[in-house]
Structures are given as C-alpha cells and as structure tokens.
C-alpha cells in the first residue's frame, strides 16, 4: 500500500478528479454521470437543491458507497482500484456530526488518528494544537455527549484534520455553528487550502460558496449543470452583477435555461 508522506505536494496536480460517476438506488438515478476536477490548493463548492446527489457523490469519493460507473482519482491514486491508499489522504466530514458520545474529545482524536495510522507523538501535538485552536482544550476530557451541537461539530472537524488530509470533503460544514465558530471553521478550511490541500464542500449557504470557493459547481438531479468561477457563472447565466443566489435559483428552477447556458 503506497503511503505518500511528502509534505509540500505540488499544488497544481489534480487533487480530485471525478469522471462519469453514476449511482442508482432502486431504479432512480441519484448520480448521473458527474465529472469534475479539484486542484490541490483549490476550494470547490458543490451547490444544489436537497436531493440533488451532492452527498451521494461525496460518499462515493470517500469510498463509503460503491459507484455503478465512473472513475475517482485522488492525487493520482485510483480510488476505486486502491481505496485504502486513497482513503489515507481523504477526510470526510458528514453533515451530522459523527461522534462517539461516550468518548472524550481527546479520546476521540486519539482514536481517529489511530485509524489513519498517525503516530502517538504527532497525534498528541496535533490534537493539542487543534483543540486549542477550536476552543475545546478546556473540554478535552469531557465526554462528547455533554457538548453542544457547535462543539460537536468542532470536535469532528478536529478529527477530520488530525491526519492532515490532502483532500478534505465537507458536507454542509457550517450548519448549526454560531458566527464565531463559523469564522473559525472557515479560517481552518482556508488554511488547509493555502497549504495545498484540495477542499470540496457542499453547502446550502450560498454566500459561503460565493465568498470562499475558488470554483463552484451546481448540480441537480444527479447531473452537473454548470461549473466555473463565480464571475464565469454570472456571465454565463447572463446576469451580470447578480448574486450567486439569483444565478443559482435561475439555474435550478429552469432546467431548459440551464441546458442552454451549459451548451454555450
């Protein structure tokens, strides 16, 4: 199993490359031939209405779901052929905080680090850094069941970052966070991007995508309608000066208009 440990990876290599990804559940096509690419050092936002296939797509990339068809490459590793090697570089942060209520925050980080094979000394150092940064240091020995939703979210984020993933996938990362926590999380995400990680997030808070994302992809009914930088999207939607919300709503509410735009 190739374990790549190089620190400063080339920012211009393709971090995540998805081609022709498809998945059906009982005859219904949840993801229908999606393809996109996220570079190292880039933040990509996946936007779409509920049930568009965002989470299903990310779950397939994370190796939690077998794709019916398509390819996933994570920093050059074929994730479908060698899932273990790909997972080594991935962190997956689902929208519902996945925490063990009965573990303390410290134990949780220790456990997650163990799963990714981080050695003990490094774990201790990073765990302390992350917990201090996220304001959980004082609570490190409390069981997670006593945490508020925001604290849980932060603890899970710390868990996702403890093995310094090259590909960070966040599903609705800011749900339920207060302003301060939300700022912290955004800063952390930006920092990872600056260090060359590929970050992909789904969000329904359009402003977040607007402000943070380098590129945005809009999906609906399991298909990628359109993708590009914000100004590109605005230009292609023929709505110069409009907010992303306007662009988004006009795209997802009028499929034929979206198809025309995409065809341009």
């Amino acid at each position: 199993m190739p374990r790549r440990k190089e620190k400063g990876f080339d920012t211009m290599t393709s971090g995540l490359k998805v081609t022709g990804l498809a998945k059906s559940f009982g005859g219904k096509r949840a993801v229908d031939g999606i393809g996109f690419e996220v570079q190292g050092g880039e933040l990509y936002a996946l936007l779409g209405p509920n049930g568009a296939g965002k989470t299903t797509t990310l779950r397939m990339v994370a190796g939690l779901l077998n794709a019916d068809a398509g390819d996933v490459s994570v920093f050059g590793i074929d994730a479908r052929r060698d899932p273990s090697a790909a997972k080594q570089h991935i962190a997956w942060l689902p929208d519902e905080p996945l925490l063990y209520d009965k573990l303390t925050a410290w134990e949780y980080l220790e456990f997650v680090a163990g799963l990714w094979g981080v050695d003990t000394a490094t774990t201790a150092k990073r765990a302390e850094e992350l917990l201090r940064l996220l304001g959980l240091w004082e609570n490190r020995n409390d069981r997670c069941e006593t945490f508020s939703r925001g604290m849980k979210q932060k603890a899970v984020l710390a868990g996702a970052l403890i093995h310094e993933p090259k590909l960070l996938m966040l599903d609705e990362p800011l749900t339920g966070l207060d302003a301060a926590a939300s700022r912290l999380v955004k800063d952390l995400i930006r920092e990872r991007v600056a260090k060359g990680a590929a970050v992909i997030l789904t969000t329904h808070i359009l402003e977040v995508a607007e402000r943070m994302a380098d590129r945005i992809g809009i999906i609906k009914d399991g298909k990628l309608l359109i993708e590009g930088r914000l100004d590109e999207l605005q230009a292609r939607a023929g709505a110069q000066g409009q907010s992303l919300e306007d662009v988004f709503l006009s795209l997802v509410s009028q499929p034929q208009a979206a198809a025309e735009v995409a065809a341009q």
């Binding site: 939690l64 273990s84 799963l115 990714w116 094979g117």
Partner: peptide, 13 residues
C-alpha cells in the same frame, strides 16, 4: 451506522 461511516472512510480494511 454513523460510526461505521467514520471507520470505513479510514484506510483500514
């Protein structure tokens, strides 16, 4: 299976 999501997204077999 919430915690299995975490476990299965790790590189362990």
């Amino acid at each position: 299976r919430n915690d299995l999501d975490l476990l299965l997204s790790s590189p362990l077999s």
